[in-house]
């Protein structure tokens, strides 16, 4: 049935249909990668027609820039704490919502809401929750007699990063909760019945049935959390703009500020390319590790 005429019209259609997608993709996603590297070789404000070629001096400067290294360190703290906080709580909530308790629908509906809102709205809301005088958190601590724990939260370099990470966890835990819920629902009931017959308690069922079967989901969740944490921007920018004194600076906020506040587009591009390279290496490394894990299963 596949005559030559039909296959020729296939090729024409294929090219025509693919063209818009390929055009958008090449112009806005692929070309920017070499362009960013190219810009990183210049001193340039992004607007004036003259760029001054400066070789690798932006890169040299970046490698000696303590703020950049601090930002990278903060990114790593964010990655580690995100995985250590979001995954366990997401798992507990997932178990909770799949167990036979009442009002499950209400709980599920409310728990998911943070996923829907913009980071800008969440950042603003939490900025006022952390407010030293009028904030919800300090007021609550005073209410239950823990005045000595009240502090400036976002204003204090010692607590700012952890406060912001708290909000990030609040925003993303619902996602991991849904992920684990879907995986738990997929576990056949017979396994639990068999475990019960063998005399396992509720906790025993969780440890010996649920947890081992969720290994794949857990490693996938770790990858998503890692990749997401390395490119984090919105919420931190809204809540602290990387301050006070760069204590919450991330690679993305630093890159944005260099490029669009101080108009050092060349330097900003160098940071962007470094970010790209670090994310790529991390993603490939984690995928290698988890693939190894999957085979070991």
């Amino acid at each position: 049935m596949l005559g030559q005429e039909r296959s020729r019209s296939f090729t024409a259609t294929a090219i025509l249909f693919l063209l818009p997608a390929v055009a958008f993709y090449v112009v806005y996603m692929l070309l920017p990668i070499p362009m960013s590297f190219y810009y990183s070789l210049f001193k340039w404000d992004g607007i004036s027609p003259t760029k001054v070629y400066s070789g690798l001096s932006n890169w040299d400067e970046m490698l000696h820039d303590t703020i950049f290294w601090g930002a990278l360190r903060n990114n790593i703290v964010l990655v580690v704490l995100s995985i250590l906080i979001q995954l366990p709580i997401g798992l507990i909530l997932g178990v909770l919502l799949t167990s036979r308790i009442r009002f499950v629908k209400l709980f599920k509906t409310v728990y998911f809401i943070p996923m829907l809102l913009s980071s800008v709205a969440i950042g603003l809301l939490w900025k006022y929750i952390y407010d030293p005088t009028f904030g919800l958190l300090n007021s609550f601590l005073r209410l239950i007699g823990l005045q000595h724990l009240t502090t400036g939260w976002l204003g204090d370099p010692a607590t700012a990063l952890f406060s912001v990470i708290g909000t990030i966890c609040w925003q993303y835990i619902p996602f991991y909760m849904i992920l684990f819920m879907a995986a738990i629902v997929g576990i056949p009931d017979e396994l639990y019945e068999a475990a019960k017959i063998d005399g396992a308690s509720d906790l025993g069922c969780f440890r010996h049935v649920t947890l081992p079967l969720l290994r794949g989901t857990i490693s996938m969740a770790s990858i998503l959390s890692l990749v997401g944490s390395l490119k984090y921007f919105d919420l931190i920018y809204v809540m602290t703009e990387g301050g006070p004194n760069h204590s919450t600076e991330l690679m993305a906020t630093y890159m944005y500020k260099k490029a669009f506040h101080s108009f050092e587009m060349g330097y900003g591009s160098a940071v962007a390319v470094a970010m790209f390279a670090i994310s790529l290496i991390a993603a490939v490394a984690v995928m290698g590790v988890t693939q190894y894990d999957a085979r070991a299963l």
């Binding site: 693919l18 070309l31 990668i33 993305a252 890159m255 591009s269 962007a272 390319v273 993603a283």
Partner: peptide, 29 residues
Amino acid sequence: PFRFNRFILVAFMAGMMIPVHIMLIPVYV
């Protein structure tokens, strides 16, 4: 049955890994 389908699909999938920040300055320009 288009000859370059596989290649194009892989290229698009790779795009899911590109962090948005590398696009920011070139897209602005």
